[in-house]
């Protein structure tokens, strides 16, 4: 080995500093994998917080449709012995949940100060899902047609990386079960196969949860945004088909943004609201999906295993040569 240790270290230190200089976000962008496209027949949901009345029919319907157990938070267990389902958040036993934003005297709905608002939490069915990207055993999959993100418990090893990696905190592992599994909204695929509407949208009395093709829902959003607040509008319920009775209500004053299309690579579930999305606990996220970054770097490093193979060859050569040299020295 001719390489002098001192030289090596100097090179390493200099190289490190040089790399540091180049390590701006733009340089890092070179690694990033191109974004994924919305599947052609992507199905989605439009959740309109202003229409939600907090009746929690969706939570109940979801439990029934997906055969999930009743949830009883520990701090309520002294008066609730499991007869009243009262989920506090998504968990291994709850696939969707209605939460309330409260402020001050809570006088009016959909107002930020001294008001309140409801929000529904469940899987947003990302276009480029982190959970699918991180799952080591392909238990999380994204349907190439409909874009629904599904989970296969028979593949899952329970590493919970999907729980850790989801930017929305959606997949959850049932920690209180020795044979627990990951629970997440799979958009009632079993009902959709039969041509039915997902349970939460099907039951929603106001159409706050609306099921449909993502493109159709985008049009619906634009219709609502195009109308003057206060004008009466026939709000669809359940899905966008004409065979369900609609209901008439004034168009609320939305904040002029949709949550979902521009968050972490885009989602198939979109939110409308009259209060800021952060107030509803929807995290502020960059436009790019995090899977693009992690997969980009990973794929760069391990492309066709060329780099590791070359490294192994080099290492083996040095190890072999050095071992032979040592044997000769000893001999």
């Amino acid at each position: 080995m001719a390489l002098n240790r001192r030289d090596f270290l100097k090179c390493a230190a200099l190289g490190g500093a040089a790399a540091g200089t180049a390590a701006s976000t733009e340089a890092a962008a070179a690694f990033i994998r191109p974004p994924k496209e919305m599947p052609p027949k992507a199905v989605g949901m439009l959740y309109d917080s202003t229409l939600c009345i907090g009746c929690r029919a969706c939570v109940d319907a979801c439990k029934e449709a997906n055969d999930m157990p009743v949830e009883m938070p520990v701090h309520l267990s002294d008066w609730n012995e499991g007869t009243w389902d009262s989920p506090e958040d998504l968990s291994g036993r709850t696939l969707n949940v209605i939460k309330a934003y409260r402020h001050g005297t809570m006088e009016a709905k959909d107002r930020e100060t001294d008001g309140y608002a409801f929000v529904k939490r469940h899987c947003l069915h990302c276009v480029d899902p982190s959970c699918v990207s991180v799952c080591p055993v392909s238990a999380m999959r994204k349907d190439p047609e409909t874009g629904i993100v599904t989970h296969d418990p028979d593949a899952c090893i329970g590493c919970r990386y999907c729980v850790y990696g989801c930017p929305f905190g959606v997949p959850q592992y049932d920690l209180d079960n020795p044979f627990g599994k990951i629970a997440k909204c799979q958009f009632c695929t079993h009902l959709q196969e039969k041509g039915q509407t997902p349970a939460c949208c099907d039951v929603c009395p106001t159409g706050a949860s609306l099921f449909g093709l993502v493109d159709d829902l985008k049009e619906e959003t634009e219709r609502r945004f195009a109308m003057q607040p206060g004008t009466l509008y026939q709000f669809p319920r359940g899905n966008l088909s004409e065979d369900r009775p609609r209901h008439e209500a004034p168009v609320p004053k939305y904040i002029p943004a949709v949550y979902g299309p521009n968050e972490a690579g885009g989602t198939q579930v979109h939110y409308l609201s009259a209060v800021a999305f952060e107030k509803l606990g929807l995290p502020k996220l960059p436009k790019r999906s995090f899977a693009q970054v992690s997969e980009g770097i990973q794929h760069t490093l391990y492309k066709n295993l060329i780099a590791p193979a070359l490294l192994l060859a080099g290492l083996a050569f040095f190890a072999w040569r050095n071992a032979r040299k040592r044997d000769q020295d000893e001999a």
């Binding site: 055993v137 392909s138 593949a155 794929h299």
Partner: peptide, 15 residues
Amino acid sequence: NLLLPWYAQPSSVMF
């Protein structure tokens, strides 16, 4: 399942 090729997911760092 980590060792079964049909479950392999090479994009996963965890894998």
